[in-house]
Every structure is written in structure tokens, then in C-alpha cells.
Computed example of a mutant assay.
Amino acid sequence: MCRWLAYTGEPLHPSSLIVDTQHSIVAMALNSPLGAETVNGDGFGLGWYPVRKGDGPDAGRPHVFRSIEPAWNDANLREISQAVTSPLFLTHVRAAAAPPIQQTNCHPFRHENWLFMHNGAISHFGTIKRDLTFEVDPALYTGIQGTTDTEVLFHLALTYGLMDDPITAVGAAIRRVEEVGHAAGIQFPMQGTIAVSDGETLWTFRYSSQGRSRTLFHSADIPTLRTMYPDVERLSQFGDHAQVVVSEPLNDLPGVFLEVPESTVAVLDPTGYHHQPFLDA
């Protein structure tokens, strides 16, 4: 469906991960070995926080750059990702399943200080779109600008309290998708991996109704990697708190990227990486 990457840690140029790695997100857009589709060329997005929440006048306010160009063919993506620095950013390359290719359908989606992106699909979304959209709080409804299942899922989570309790809210949104889907005769309504952030913490989810979710990996901690690979100079570019969650590994070095378990939410914050079961019952 799509591929995505999320980073949190010491500020760096996003290009360090989305362009300059062996199997970068830009490379995955053209050739994704572990993806449901090999090519993800139906647009891309980059959302970044200039500073962490509470660290300045623009704290917690993300910027978003989205385009319908293929990521590998967009010079502006390279320029912007090399020009800005960020302690927390999300990037996404899209393979459109059904909704049209337009800028408002490119991830990540933004609401106030929140960013949200998704790889996967709500099965037979057109059949249950009306019922799900009508579940969105009327005060939030006007924020839906595109036609994707992801944007509706995001606004459902906002409706169910994302800004107060992201894990519970995303879980409630997914359970509602499953309830409506099952009522419509859809066996496996939900598929995907999700990333959401408020500018301080990053929550990433791997879940599907079938129990066969899209791939998702997190990086091992940098001090451990420096011990494992003392001769890899590239590791010196990253601070001790650098953490990445990505649809598939960015390089071929064993032990650098570890698979996020099925039905799991991974929480990344200044204290490190933590994960726990998510909707596994």
C-alpha cells in the first residue's frame, strides 16, 4: 500500500534518513522489497517539528510538505530535507489503492500539533465510508480535506480522544471500523501500520483484523549499534537518543532493525523505546 518512516531523537537533517540511507524511503518508493506493492509513486509527504514541544515559540507546531510527484523525482523534497533540522519527523510514500492522486490525499495528515500517517487500508472503504464519516465529531468534520480512509481514521481517533489518550483513541477508532465493517459483511476490515505524534512522543501501531499486518521495524539503540559496528562511520551522525521506526530496514546490517511484533503499539519518547500489546484479544 505505502511505506513510511518516523524519527525521534537529536535534531538532524531528515535527508540523513529519507534520502541518504542504503534502502531509503525514496529508494523504497521506487523499489520496496517487503511492500504489498513494489512501487510507491503516487505522491509523498514530509511532516516535521522544528523543535520539541515546549522548547520554543514554535514548539509542537509541525510543518508539512506534500506532493503528488514520485518521491524519487522531486528535487524540492531533497532541498527541503537537507535544509531543515528536526528532532521529530514523519515521512510517507504512497501507493494509491483507490482514492485519487491529489495533494490532500498524501500523508502525513495534520490537526493542530498532531501528525498522523498510515500504511494499509480499510477494506471496502467505499462501502462503509458514509457510516464511518458520520461518526466524526461535527466540529472536526471540516478538517477532512481529502478522500482517503486514513484521514477518516485520523478524525475518528480525534473524535474518540486522541489528544488525551492516543493509544485508547486509536484502538477505539479501529474497533469502530471493525464493528461497521463486520456489520457490512467485511471479514477483515482493518489492515495497517500507523504513526502518530504530538511533537514530543511518537506512537506507532502494527495491527490488522486478520493478524497479518504490513511490515514494521524499529532501530536498535545507537550506543549498542556503535559497539556492534565500531567501524561504521555513519553511526557518528546520530545522537545517543536517535530512534527510527520504518516499514522496512534502511540497511542490510544484521541487528540494526528489529521487527515490531504483531498487534503492538510502540511508544518512543525521550526515555527510549517501549512497546506493549495492542488490541491483541
Rank of each mutant, 00 (worst) to 15 (best):
V51R: 12
G126T: 12
E69W: 06
R61Q: 12
W72E: 01
A71N: 09
G120E: 11
I101G: 11
N119L: 08
G56Y: 08
L140E: 04
Y141C: 02
H111N: 13
G47M: 04
N40K: 13
G41Y: 06
A59H: 06
D55F: 14
E37P: 00
F109D: 08
F44R: 03
Q82T: 12
A98K: 13
G56P: 10
I128L: 10
L77I: 00
D55E: 15
F116H: 13
I101Q: 14
V39C: 11
V136M: 04
P108R: 12
N113W: 04
V51P: 07
G143K: 08
G54P: 14
E112G: 08
R130L: 12
D58F: 13
P70S: 07
D74G: 10
I80V: 10
H107N: 13
V51G: 10
A97R: 07
A71V: 09
W114C: 10
R61M: 09
P100M: 07
I122Q: 08
S123C: 11
P138Y: 09
G41H: 11
R61A: 07
W114E: 02
P99Q: 03
H124R: 15
T127R: 14
T91Y: 00
R52K: 11
V136T: 03
L90M: 14
E69T: 05
H92P: 04
C106R: 08
A71L: 06
R94E: 04
A83I: 00
E112F: 11
A96E: 07
N76R: 14
Q145L: 15
V93S: 01
T127F: 04
H124M: 13
N40T: 04
Y141L: 15
I144S: 04
N76G: 05
P87H: 07
R94I: 08
T133L: 12
S123V: 12
A83P: 01
Q82R: 15
D42E: 05
T104D: 10
F89S: 02
A75G: 05
Y49N: 10
I80W: 05
A75C: 01
F89E: 00
E37V: 09
E112M: 12
H124Q: 15
F134M: 13
H92Y: 02
N119F: 10
F89C: 02
T127P: 00
R130F: 09
H118P: 14
P57T: 03
G56D: 05
L140S: 05
P87A: 06
N113T: 08
S123H: 14
D137N: 15
H63Q: 05
G146H: 07
M117L: 15
A96W: 11
I101S: 14
Y49D: 03
G146M: 05
